[in-house]
Design a protein around this nucleic acid. Structure first.
Lengths: 213, 213
DNA sequence: GAATGTGAAGGTTTTCACAGCA
DNA sequence: TGCTGTGAAAACCTTCACATTC
């Protein structure tokens, strides 16, 4: 069996893959057959070399002299990112942010389907959000398993987040998107991303004070 | 006049400053007087050297053998990030996400005050959200100026985003947080950050498919 | 001719390791 | 002794430049 070449792909490359995916989806809709690294780069203020290098980590998708085939490249990237399948998502905490996420149509469009919603507020439990019933957070573990949830979104207050994440991890979920403004501890085999909107504003605040550049 | 030493501070450092700020706020509430780089690092899975290096770009805030004074360091970072003052924020587009942001208490807590809300939906215009009236997006430019808005949050569909951002920039706003899943063009003197929640899930999807690490 | 794919160069960020100070 | 502050080294990421292919 040939040994797989174990190249470490950087987070920035994965992030840009996501960007290319969005650009290619748009190009495909417009009917473009091919696109060059230069064209892709210009749309996002990247360099052509960066685009080519990013793609080259995963294979040789282009044709010299011509560029990349839009449809095929989009499909290849979809496969790399795992977007060629549906993912089951749970939203833990259906407050302001949780509600907004449940209604966010972009998720479905990219193959992320919200299968379960949890809260600890008795007034919310049992009610429906976009066709999904709100479950008692006490049943978190069983229901995550019952719904084969792949990915959990944590949108509860900071004080409640770690305990719930521990439950989520215990249920076997291996990817977590955290909106609580706190640093969560997860085992090494679990992926965690933090979305802290105050911190985004703070970055902007820094540039307002210190100049942008 | 002494020439200011022009050191370029990396985005990662600014991002971590925001993290330190949060940790220090918590430590201050707990009554801690000092904290070492090792303690700060451990809470966020960073290295002590990283913490010290980050802080050293802005001055020598610590005491050898002792660590950093919690209260003073928090105040210093607040000043660096521009959090020692209030910022006027506008929310452009009061759909699911816009509504959630207006209700997000963390913003106020960090000194970001929502002073204006805009939409193009006549049913929404005139209604109030958390004490702020929704204005017609047609009046964007005047109202941004009238409210001395420093920072705009774009939470409209992708198709409407660029035109509105052009207006926002024309009104003199120099910092934009964009939730629309599209790449926006702004002049060099305007700071732009993108918050694309689908892309966050796509990063997680990649790690689910390819393994985490 | 046009554009990819990729080693090598260049640049940036992180980590090391230790002098220096409380 | 304990911990900071910081040059130097190492690791990492981006850009260059060109051989290669269509």
């Amino acid at each position: 069996m040939p040994k797989r070449k174990e190249k470490k792909i950087s987070e920035s490359t994965i992030h840009r893959l996501s960007i290319y995916y969005r650009l290619l989806s748009a190009l495909e809709k417009e009917g473009a057959a091919t696109v060059s690294s230069r064209e892709l780069a210009k749309k996002e203020k990247l360099t052509p070399a960066q685009v080519r290098k990013d793609l080259s980590f995963f294979g040789s998708f282009g044709t010299r002299g011509l560029g990349y085939p839009v449809k095929e490249l989009r499909e290849k990237i979809a496969k790399i990112l795992g977007l060629n399948r549906a993912w089951n998502v749970a939203v833990v905490g259906i407050g302001n942010i949780g509600s907004a996420l449940v209604s966010y149509k972009e998720f479905q469009r990219q193959g992320f389907f919200i299968r379960a919603i949890f809260d600890n507020d008795l007034r919310k439990i049992g009610s429906g959000h976009k066709g999904v019933a709100v479950s008692d957070v006490k049943n978190l573990r069983e229901e995550l398993k019952a719904n084969a949830v792949d990915l959990a979104i944590i949108s509860v207050p900071a004080s409640a987040a770690q305990a719930l994440v521990d439950e989520v991890v215990a249920a076997g979920v291996r990817a977590i998107l955290n909106f609580a403004p706190i640093s969560l501890k997860v085992p090494d085999n679990v992926s965690l991303r933090n979305e802290n909107m105050s911190m985004e504003l703070e970055q902007l605040s820094y540039f307002l004070v210190n100049g942008n550049g």
